[in-house]
């Protein structure tokens, strides 16, 4: 039996990698979306792990829903990306500073 903390530590590491990816990434939004996918993955990891160790299937049901939502999210995100590319001819993160105060 693998200790529960191994899985949790693993998911934490994935989560922090994806966070680092968000703010280290200056190239394009696509990688940013991929980082988000990774983040969801780590969350799913947590849910499955805890569900398994507590003997509860609800965690897996939850992961099921998370997968659904993530699929929809990535579809919309990519659609937005395309719209953005059409208007700005670039998906560079550095070019997206309309919110600048």
């Amino acid at each position: 039996m693998i200790p529960i903390s191994y899985y949790l530590i693993l998911s934490t590491i994935i989560f922090t990698i994806s966070i680092a990816g968000i703010f280290l990434n200056r190239k394009n939004i696509l990688v940013l979306l991929m980082s988000l996918e990774l983040m969801f993955l780590s969350v799913n990891f947590n849910l499955i792990t805890l569900g398994n160790y507590l003997g509860d299937l609800t965690g897996q049901v939850f992961v099921f829903f998370v997968l659904t939502v993530v699929a929809a999210e990535s579809a919309i995100g990519l659609a937005l990306l395309i719209v953005l590319f059409r208007s700005k001819k670039s998906i560079d993160v550095d070019d997206l500073s309309e919110l600048k105060g």
Binding site: T68, V69, A71, A72, E73, A75, I76, V83
Partner: peptide, 17 residues
């Protein structure tokens, strides 16, 4: 509801692009 969300994702992706 999850099914509806997926439908929403489809529609919005189409509308946007």
């Amino acid at each position: 509801i999850a099914g509806l969300i997926l439908l929403l994702g489809i529609i919005s992706a189409i509308v946007l692009t």
